[in-house]
Design a protein around this nucleic acid. Sequence first.
DNA 1: ACCTGAACACCGTTCAAGT
DNA 2: ACCTGAACACCGTTCAAGT
Lengths: 221, 221
Amino acid sequence: MPSTTTDSDGTSPGTGKRRVPLSRASVVAAGRRLARDEGLAAVTLRRVAAELGVTAMALYRHVGDKRELLVAMLDGVAEQLVIPDGTGSPSDRLVLAFRALHDHLTAEPWVAEVLRGGELFGPSAARFVEHVLALLAEAGLDDEQAGDAYWALWWYTFGHLSYLPALGPEGRPARHELMTRVRMDDHPRLARMLSRPPRAGAAEDAFVPGLRALLRGLLAD
Amino acid sequence: MPSTTTDSDGTSPGTGKRRVPLSRASVVAAGRRLARDEGLAAVTLRRVAAELGVTAMALYRHVGDKRELLVAMLDGVAEQLVIPDGTGSPSDRLVLAFRALHDHLTAEPWVAEVLRGGELFGPSAARFVEHVLALLAEAGLDDEQAGDAYWALWWYTFGHLSYLPALGPEGRPARHELMTRVRMDDHPRLARMLSRPPRAGAAEDAFVPGLRALLRGLLAD
DNA sequence: ACCTGAACACCGTTCAAGT
DNA sequence: ACCTGAACACCGTTCAAGT
């Protein structure tokens, strides 16, 4: 019945029978494709299933529930992260690591959204955390200091990723609405900040200086 | 019909007729009460309406749509923020301001969730931004530097607020699940970080030192 | 003017049933 | 073993109808 009524799923269905017999990997891959192409909101079990030419209930045989699907998607991203390293100071190498993380996650914005859902991270992200903790130790921090510093760096990075949409072109209407509702006479500096032409990639360019500033403060005794 | 079948709304309904004739303010107040007591997920138009002894559709006369309700709730919180100030250095006064913001928002965790939805903030938050920008200027930053510094401070604060649930007792199951799935032999430092007894209020206590570190880096020429 | 009832197009999830 | 159909208990939102 739905095969004749639905017409908005232009990819795999239409070929009639499925080639591959539906595995956990294919479900997760379909989820990632959907998230990348149409945003996290498009990742519903029904949509993912449709993408695979199958009903939503068939997915439960492979993923448990939706949360598990999202975590699996997350872990796929973490797995693909390449952590660059160098021969400079621990601080320089930390900048390198976090910039790589930042760029990697910026390329797939839905990841920040899932992380906001409360997930710490998948197992594959452990590599990154371990790498950062080792560099912080090399810089002279003890276990507890390194732990706190790791979280500070992550909060900064995560906050940045979360606010990219609001600062980018997508956030224009919200910023405009705000400017009309705030009495700008009483807030001259805010008015200047909001009205300043948002130079291309300003938010991205601001990330590294802020990161360096945070590191300078964290690593200073 | 629903007045006899529903029995889970213990507050206003049950008194029979409503006292107050349903205003925008009462709708927003009901939303905040619900968010505070049962979390943001409980704030559905149907639940808010039930709380007021009314149908969901009645709300549309007063709030436009759900997003508008959430922004109005947000603005109520911002309005109640008291920004303390002192006579110390700009840096100390910035710590004072952000700590007040942090404590205020920690008390109502749903706010961070709404902000994650992409809202910059409501008009009432303009006071805070203006205050911070003025202090950054006093510390010697020009408009552009102050703008970047403001965002760095906000990213840090927002990231912290977003991760509080994951680090607190609520996040225990997720942390535990993670520890079982990661090969901890390969990640000794991560293992130590996750297994360390999370001292009471560790995340809260880590906020201010990280904030000071960030400020030190941002205000250094 | 203000509110309601019924409906629409969605969700995640369960469960008995098919092959 | 693997998938489907139908159903349940929800969402936000629209629209004609009531008072």
